[in-house]
Design a protein around this nucleic acid. Structure first.
Lengths: 351, 351
DNA sequence: GCGCTTTACTAATGCGGATTACTAGACGAT
DNA sequence: ATCGTCTAGTAATCCGCATTAGTAAAGCGC
């Protein structure tokens, strides 16, 4: 009940004085090394009793400086995490991360101070607080390969969220877009489609490439006719016109927003979806509730990705840290939606 | 171009060796104290050159231990920040906080490790990493008065998001629910309402009390008849029945979810909103997009609350720290909605 | 040529905790 | 009585940086 008398911070040294032992002993007791250091139970109890009623809290900075872990995971997002456009991308990931961190008793240090250079943040800046964390999670659609390399060289433990293909293999937890895309293609084939057109983003991000891999892999083995083409918001109109000339029975679209716009244009032009043209969406950057159309699409388990990433990082920091980098791919969910149906053999799209 | 040769971490001491000066000098230069310490420009340049190409980054733990600030703000949420129900409450706040932190070059340390005891988190636990932060932000609908007191005693800088009424005044940035509620009541009075029924939450949280204050303050001066009653999800049905007996022309409801349910019941019972009964909503715990009904309601500027809280904390940590605790109230927006109209004199609700 | 001031630094210390190396005393075996 | 071993600790050192208290050398007035 003594409470600590006034201000001077509670430290191990003060506890040591009160318990009539040395600071070393206090440290030993606090870190559970009492047994292996021949500290008898009575002494341990004496120390613990004083610790308990002194409200002592170890200074995390001192612990870290002395080389101990601190149960802090850093989080670095290559785009700002909250601002509008990205909010819906990051929120589910952060939800999973937070839940797992809370469960495991970890704090999360968000590196929001990272300076932005032409739209991308940089983890390594002269003031980075990286070393405060025991390890860190990297989020973002695309990451800087040099920074990943540097982290590996520093032997700083980290896990990327999303598959990463780099010269040196890095640990990641990602979504299996290859299989999910292939499965959607297979569904379309089963439904009878033989003319596939794919409007994908013009990016070298792994998730983008993976969808293409899935698309082509499944179609290569089939007798279907197919075509893929990169688009951006700016070229979407042209792409749509070209697509119509090509006369697909099913249109795969990567960006949900592009899909919305095309769906609208189709409606205006009297092209019915899915009767005249089926549509499948492969990306999901904004929240489903906002959608007017219930597209047939895939859905990455983003909450789970977040928590699995935390678990992976925990494993890496544990005793039995695996030698190989952890690389996990989680299955996506296929959302049936209402925009994939059997092709209309008589009247194809854009007659 | 030398790069640091192999592993041994770059430290001020290594830089000192390379620059042929003492570690002290390096520290002085790094902290801009060169001028006041008679370090000539050439020496400063020599040191800075080596720092620049050595990719040196100061160890934040060491800085903190030595008493320097670290540009880290802690964030403590009394409820888990992301999990489902709370997500929509915290997201806008975090958006504002993140934006302001990024702008000011601060990192954010989220204290997710805080243990949960019957639904509430506790900031002070034997392993808290509070001291790693320069100051912290407290979020949550209700906060533990003891913990606030303890923070004050520790002289640990913090800002609460949301008005806080405590024995010792604490710094906060909150929303002015009193005025906003009063304004909505005034609108209803102007529309001709004279029979007000208020279903509020049974909580002692300041925001809840403030809405009551606004409600009563405005009605005390009027000739209107009014009644207020605490409700919970469990007692809502009963409350609704009682309300109908009382025959209000306008119903103020604190919880948006309660309002949704009542709106549904009213529809089933043939009571038209707002023709037969006007409704006004005062709380906003979930996102507007999810709403079926566009209620007349108030809206707290949550993004701004977040960023203003960060700014307040920055001010407290600056040179000219104000002696008085910063206490700011931001105005709420009144959303006109479609559920407040002139009362129907002939046929009141629940005939 | 002797104090005094200014310049240009550096040695030493402390922050709080983890860890290693060491010591004093007790006990057992020879 | 002597050596070795075990117990119960403690002293000392280190982590990397910030800061205070010097100190050696140069410049200057008289």
């Amino acid at each position: 009940m003594s409470k600590k008398t006034s201000s001077p911070r509670m430290t191990q040294r003060r506890i040591a004085e009160l318990a009539q032992v040395s600071q070393t002993t206090v440290s030993l007791v606090m870190n559970g090394k009492a047994d292996s250091s021949h500290i008898p139970p009575e002494t341990v109890q004496r120390v613990l009793a004083i610790v308990a009623d002194s409200q002592y809290v170890a200074d995390p900075a001192a612990r870290r400086l002395a080389g101990a872990a601190n149960r802090i995971f850093g989080i670095f997002t290559y785009e700002s995490a909250f601002p509008s456009e990205s909010v819906d991308f990051y929120t589910p990931l952060l939800t999973g991360i937070e839940a797992a961190a809370e469960h495991a008793g970890h704090d999360l240090l968000m590196f929001t101070s990272a300076p932005v250079e032409n739209g991308r943040r940089h983890l390594f800046h002269p003031n980075n607080r990286l070393r405060l964390a025991d390890g860190c999670l990297l989020l973002g659609r695309e990451m800087d390969a040099d920074e990943l390399t540097r982290l590996v060289q520093l032997e700083f433990p980290f896990v990327a969220v999303g598959r990463r293909e780099t010269a040196i293999p890095v640990p990641y937890v990602g979504a299996d877009y290859v299989s999910a895309t292939a499965a959607l293609v297979a569904d379309a084939l089963t439904a009878g489609h033989r003319d596939f057109y794919y409007l994908h983003l013009d990016s070298t991000g792994e998730s983008v490439l993976d969808r293409q891999t899935g698309f082509f892999r499944e179609l290569m083995d089939s007798t279907a006719r197919f075509e893929a083409r990169p688009v951006s918001s700016a070229t979407l109109r042209t792409a749509w016109e070209e697509a119509k000339v090509w006369r697909p029975t099913v249109l795969f679209v990567e960006d949900p927003e592009h899909a919305e716009r095309i769906h609208r244009w189709a409606a205006e032009e009297g092209i019915r979806v899915p009767e005249d043209l089926s549509m499948v969406v492969l990306g999901e950057h904004s929240r489903p509730e906002n959608r007017d159309v219930d597209f047939t699409r895939l859905s990455a388990p983003r909450i789970e990705l977040g928590s699995r990433a935390v678990q992976a990082l925990s494993r890496m920091l544990g005793e039995d840290a695996p030698a190989e980098p952890i690389q996990e791919l989680l299955a996506c969910t296929l959302e049936p939606g209402t925009t994939l149906a059997a092709p209309n053999r008589d009247g194809q799209a854009a007659r």
